[in-house]
Design a protein around this nucleic acid. Structure first.
Length: 898
RNA sequence: GGGCCGUUAGCUCAGUUGGUUAGAGCGCUACGUUGACAUCGUAGAGGUCACAAGUUCGAAUCUUGUACGGCCCACCA
């Protein structure tokens, strides 16, 4: 390993090498970190988080990038604090999504899955997935994910399948899984049933067709309204509200259903809203959930008018058979029109369900499916939340969670797919028994006849809801399960709150008797500048791999973390990666260069330095700048830890950023250069302090920018062979580092330097020109600051002679400082007296305004009587400070003859 | 239809229990090749905190309403 950093920061090669080091050193497993028990003999509690498993065929997108970065930051933080940290990665076999992918491949060969047959098709899927699975996992590594890959789970591997069967059989035996004929959401493209959650409701502009249905006895007609006219072919009744005066006489009469030769009854049902449309509803029990219920109550026929592909079936008149549902819609409407039965067409906005995998409009359809009865599972999940066993960050998601659980409906878990866990139920055609089983069955236990397994597979989410348990070995009582269940925090996107999070909580409570994690951190969504979700179809995505290649994973991570405040979305511009990721890249580059400087100056430092650096607090030889940077560093440590504990990762990143860039690089490094160069004494102390705070800052920043900090940290002097930052300790706050006086005095140094620079800029002083400066009426703090850091002030502001004392006469530029002292820079003819006077006057007026405001505030009896004492005290101080400045400005103006 | 969230500088956003002159990054302007860094440095411009009313000694912050944007849920066909 070379001892130097390359002159330019190039993340590409560096990151790969660093990642290899971590893997080889086994950093990612849940080590006890060698941390000794605390005073009470307790070992640190394990930190466990489960990765939301990406789909096996997924390729990395910004959503993964965001989600995994956040998980990695928290995992690395926990690890560095000495907690056994386990981040459990995995992949999801993703039923419909994956089957769709492979079906498309097969389609390119001009075939369908049915041409191949079930077994060969599944074999082909396995082969395909074996390859893609590694792709996504490898991509997750490239962003630096420190997950424990040795424990990677796959929701379709052998062990996991056992867990799925166990869960199914247990619920089945408990009577919570049943098979029934219900209206479900059917995707005519994927040819499967979907759960309610998988049918995404989307508001769309549609039409409302008003159709006239003649009475069978010819005594009149009534009008019904529908958004799906083609379903009228399956109507088996018309419903009106029982109290609707308009229809009292019609209840019980028959309607001659147009386009068919059927007669259907008019029934009275409470479900009808008399205020909507005509108040009469066509009832299609096989194609609408409400109609299904009405049909049940009135014993109406269930006529499914469509094929699985949503074409009109043989149940409809021959001329319409085989038509696609939308063609049939047009035709039906046309026929009604031709018959004079089309009353009107209205614009109508309503929600339509779409398949969440292919976007096809789902068809509500009567179908025989498997369901989980959810109410008994939902109640404990509600109770646990209300008892505080699980909390959400941000909290408001708790309401959403509650609302969903309170209105939960049974979960349709069977899918008419081939890719998935086959439903572990066997039927005996001979004796008619059916049985759920944990192991495959071949002969009927009662009649010894041959058995037939259910053809359907389970909803993918029926396997993913077991992640927190199954990934640790459940249903076996493994060591991992005992040690790491329940987990600590789940970090995911709110989109899958119902699909996954709520169901995991239910499963945890049902199968293990406890919630699977105590905190759920729901982060925002990655969107483009128009606030649209990034997606492949919109083409507004950002490829994280592209960003990593251009700017490095650290830059990506920094941008993502610093842009992700709790409860907000992350907006990035896909059209301008430069704008989106510049901050991260610039910071990485800045840190790299600061490190080159630091390392260059620490190199060859005496050995004892490394030991000494820990103790360089409150030593006689410390300069004001030293004390200041130590105190600032300590403050950054406190801020970052506070922020991380509250999931405010952006604040933690910003604490490290500002410390490193503003405090350390801009001020401290500049302040100590003469000492480092040997121009003045104190070099060793400066090096020791630099070592201390730089080391600390690298630790602070490591969870956010792990590669870069690791690479730099390893080059610090006196590092042991094989020592890794990823395993180093997170910095602890140090009471000895707190130094209010140093903070105050160095701030004065900064103020003087800034004021001098400002005067130079305003008066057009050439950059290289040395000037003189005097501070008049310096406060004790100012005197102290100047005497301690005179050299710093002079060097940073290019001041030849810096004096404290009486005002020099003659034309000069000046500034009144916050402590009430006046900075005077004699510039002779360079000063435009009129301009200077105007500047001082403007400044005076501004301050005088503030003073007046302050006097008014303090003169207000109500304020003095009601505001808390510290606030009043603070306001008095401000008043005094500003008044002082005003009078100093007046003096100055008088002196200049303004 | 119900619920939730947002509206702060040209852009993307912080601003945690109401209490300095409302901050950051990017962008912009001027100047600058000072022995880590031009992916940089220095200085600067830029905001009636969406609007209205209210509570309060005091409101970006709390309340109500309005407008606009977004999200989630929903069996008015």
């Amino acid at each position: 390993m070379s001892t130097e950093l390359s002159p330019t920061y190039s993340p590409a090669g560096l990151e790969v090498g660093i990642y290899r080091q971590w893997v080889e050193a086994g950093v990612f497993g849940p080590r006890a970190s060698g941390l000794s028990p605390d005073a009470r003999g307790l070992r640190p509690e394990a930190f466990v988080t489960m990765m939301p498993p990406p789909n096996v065929t997924a390729s990395l997108h910004m959503g993964h990038g965001l989600n995994n970065t956040l998980q990695d930051v928290l995992t690395r933080w926990a690890r560095m604090r000495g907690r056994p940290a386990l981040w459990l990665p995995g992949t999801d076999h993703a039923g419909i999504a994956t089957q769709n992918v492979v079906e498309r491949l097969v389609a390119k060969e001009g075939k369908t899955r049915f041409d191949l047959g079930r077994e060969p098709f599944i074999a082909r899927m396995h082969a395909y997935v074996d390859v893609t699975k590694e792709t996504i996992l490898g991509q997750l590594r490239s962003i630096g994910s420190s997950a424990d890959w040795s424990r990677t789970y796959y929701t379709f591997d052998e062990h996991y399948s056992k867990a799925v069967r166990e869960a199914f059989v247990r619920l089945y035996e408990k009577g919570l899984i049943y098979r029934g004929k219900r209206i479900i959401n059917w995707c005519p493209r994927c040819l499967t049933a979907l759960s309610n959650e998988e049918a995404e409701k989307e508001e769309k502009d549609g039409k409302l067709w008003h159709l006239r249905y003649p009475l069978a006895d010819g005594s009149g007609s009534l009008v019904v309204a529908t958004t799906r006219p083609e379903t009228m072919l399956g109507d088996s009744g018309v419903a009106v509200h029982p109290e609707d005066a308009r229809y009292q006489a019609l209840i019980g009469k028959m309607v001659a259903l147009p386009l068919t030769d059927r007669q259907i009854p008019i029934v009275a049902d409470e479900a009808v809203d008399p205020k909507f449309g005509s108040g009469a509803v066509k009832v299609t029990p096989a194609h609408d959930a409400t109609d299904f219920d009405i049909g049940q109550r009135h014993d109406l026929a269930q006529i499914d008018v469509m094929t699985p592909e949503a074409r009109m079936s043989e149940t409809v008149p021959e001329r319409l058979q085989g038509l696609d549902r939308y063609d049939a819609r047009k035709k039906v409407v046309a026929e009604f029109d031709a018959l004079g039965l089309l009353v009107k067409i209205e614009d109508h906005r309503h929600a339509v369900g779409h398949c969440y995998r292919c976007g096809t409009v789902v068809e509500p359809r009567l179908s025989d499916q498997w369901f989980v009865e959810m109410a008994p599972l939902a109640q404990p999940a509600l109770d646990a939340y209300r008892a505080g066993a699980v909390k959400f960050v941000p909290e408001r998601w708790g309401d959403t969670y509650t609302q969903w659980l309170e209105n939960i409906r049974d979960w349709c878990i069977s899918r008419q797919l081939w890719w998935g866990h086959r439903i572990p139920v066997w039927y005996c055609d001979a004796c008619g028994t059916k049985q759920a089983s944990r192991v495959d069955l071949s002969t009927c236990p009662s009649c010894r006849g041959p058995l037939r397994q259910d053809e359907d597979v389970l909803d993918t989410w029926f396997s993913s809801w077991l992640v927190p348990m199954a990934s640790l070995g459940w249903p076996e009582e493994t060591e991992d399960l005992a040690r790491f269940y329940p987990g600590t925090v789940l970090i995911t996107a709110p989109e899958i709150l119902f699909f996954w999070v709520a169901r995991m909580i239910m499963a945890g409570l049902e199968f293990r008797g406890t919630v699977p994690f105590s905190t759920v951190y729901l982060h925002g969504t990655v969107r483009d500048t128009q606030h649209r979700k990034m997606s492949k179809s919109l083409g507004n995505g950002i490829d994280p791999l592209d960003v990593i290649e251009k700017y490095g994973a650290d830059a990506l991570r920094y941008t993502v973390v610093s842009g992700m405040a709790v409860g907000t979305d992350l907006i990035l511009d896909p059209k301008d990666l430069e704008v989106s990721f510049a901050a991260g890249r610039n910071f990485a580059n800045k840190l790299w260069n600061a490190a080159r400087f630091v390392l260059g100056n620490l190199r060859g430092a005496p050995r004892p330095l490394a030991g000494k650096y820990r103790e360089v607090i409150r030593q006689q030889e410390l300069t004001l700048a030293d004390r200041w940077i130590i105190a600032r560093c300590d403050a950054a440590v406190r801020n970052a830890a506070d922020a991380l504990a509250k999931f405010r990762l952006n604040d933690a990143a910003s604490a490290a950023y500002h410390f490193l860039w503003s405090d350390f690089a801009d001020w401290y490094v500049e302040a100590i250069k003469p000492r480092l160069y040997g121009d003045i004494p104190g070099g060793d102390v400066a090096r020791a302090v630099t070592y201390r705070v730089f080391d600390t800052a690298l630790r602070l920043l490591h969870p956010v920018m792990p590669f870069l900090t690791e690479a730099i940290w390893q080059k610090l002097p006196a590092r042991q062979e094989g020592e890794l930052l990823a395993q180093a300790r997170w910095p602890e706050p140090d009471r000895r580092a707190v130094d209010a006086a140093a903070l105050k005095e160095f701030a004065l140094v900064q103020e003087v330097v800034t004021a001098l620079r400002q005067i130079r800029a305003e008066n057009g002083v050439e950059p290289g020109k040395q000037i003189d400066a005097t501070i008049v009426a310096a406060t004790p703090a100012m005197r102290s600051a100047l005497s301690l850091e005179e050299g710093t002030v002079r060097r940073l502001a290019k001041v030849a002679k810096l004096t404290v004392g009486a005002a020099p006469s003659g034309a000069a530029a000046s500034a009144v400082l916050t402590d009430g002292s006046t900075l005077i820079v004699p510039l002779g003819g360079m000063v435009d007296l009129a301009k200077e006077c105007a500047k001082l006057a403007a400044e005076r007026d501004r301050l005088a305004g503030m003073v007046a405001n302050q006097e008014k505030k303090l003169g207000n009896e109500q304020f003095v009587a009601r505001a808390p004492a510290p606030v009043i005290e603070g306001e008095r101080k401000k008043l005094a400070e500003w008044s002082e400045q005003v009078s100093k400005l007046d003096e100055r103006r008088k002196a200049l003859g303004c």
